[in-house]
């Protein structure tokens, strides 16, 4: 049985094809751009082409992510919370908690030994502590978000107090005017992001082995800072960004 999970995030659209919900056949990623519908269709087509398959060979297509409703060809729509649970469980079966920081939201999910969601929390409607926050701040520092980790000071960070992305940007500009180094500010931004998600996690408990996912989890120094704050190091996988799509493909293989 072949299933495809498509996760349309605010920044990137991910697709994963699986066999019987147990083995990953293909992973694919593309920028979401302005049209979630178009990127969803494109990623679907590309996965089929990559494997030389006809649509009819795929048993189920499951959509997830913020753009999920745009996937009118999907057999089922499931939220990214449920899919992240299943995806993290697939990649690391001992996972009990997931921290996910994506482009426009951050969430903490607790799951059971079967990967089912027990409890979850999402940030409120503000962008603080999300990928968007780091992107705006990187712009203020005139670097690309992918360079933020390398730029950041290894030891000292300037404290960023503002919770709001707009005010934090003014704060960063003021700090630069005061002569603070870009490296200190960059580290401060990563520390601020880590603090915010730790508070969110504290509300429902960062229990057992904690899996770190979402686009923002690709920033090495942020992972190091979070590891320092936690008693046990975070679990990270090369495929972290795909857990939503993996989870969706697993949901598709479920008999029901």
């Amino acid at each position: 049985m072949l299933t495809i999970g498509i996760d349309i995030g605010s920044v990137a659209t991910k697709a994963v094809m699986m066999e019987n919900g147990k083995k990953i056949i293909t992973k694919h990623i593309t920028p979401t751009g302005w049209s979630p519908k178009e990127s969803g269709e494109r990623v679907y087509r590309e996965v089929l082409e990559k494997n030389g398959l006809e649509k009819s060979r795929v048993n189920k297509v499951i959509g997830t992510g913020y753009g999920r409703i745009a996937l009118d060809f999907a057999d089922k729509i499931v939220t990214e919370i449920t899919c992240h649970g299943k995806g993290a469980h697939f990649l690391h079966p001992n996972t009990e908690t997931i921290i996910d920081i994506g482009g426009q939201d951050s969430k903490v999910i607790r799951i059971n030994k079967e990967g089912q969601v027990l409890d979850f929390l999402m940030n409120d409607k503000c962008a603080a502590g999300t990928g968007k926050f780091l992107e705006v701040m990187s712009n203020a520092l005139e670097v690309d978000i992918s360079q933020l980790s390398a730029l950041a000071d290894r030891k000292n960070g300037r404290k960023i107090n503002s919770m709001c992305t707009v005010f934090a940007e003014s704060e960063v500009i003021s700090l630069m005017a005061e002569g603070a180094g870009k490296g200190e500010i960059a580290r401060g931004l990563l520390e601020s992001t880590a603090n915010k998600v730790m508070v969110l996690g504290g509300r429902i408990g960062l229990v057992g082995e904690v899996f770190f996912s979402g686009g923002v989890s690709k920033i090495p120094l942020l992972r190091a800072i979070m590891d320092e704050k936690m008693n046990n190091p975070l679990i990270h996988s090369q495929d972290s960004q795909y857990i939503g799509a993996i989870g969706a493909a697993i949901v598709g293989a479920k008999k029901r």
Partner: peptide, 30 residues
């Protein structure tokens, strides 16, 4: 299962609340 939703009268966060509510119902249905 329990969830808290903090909001106001505006429609600005409808999309976000929908994700939470759908995920909550998925959590209930297993």
């Amino acid at each position: 299962p329990f969830t808290q939703i903090e909001t106001d009268y505006s429609d600005s966060d409808r999309g976000q609340i929908k994700v939470r509510v759908e995920a909550f119902l998925e959590q209930i249905q297993g």
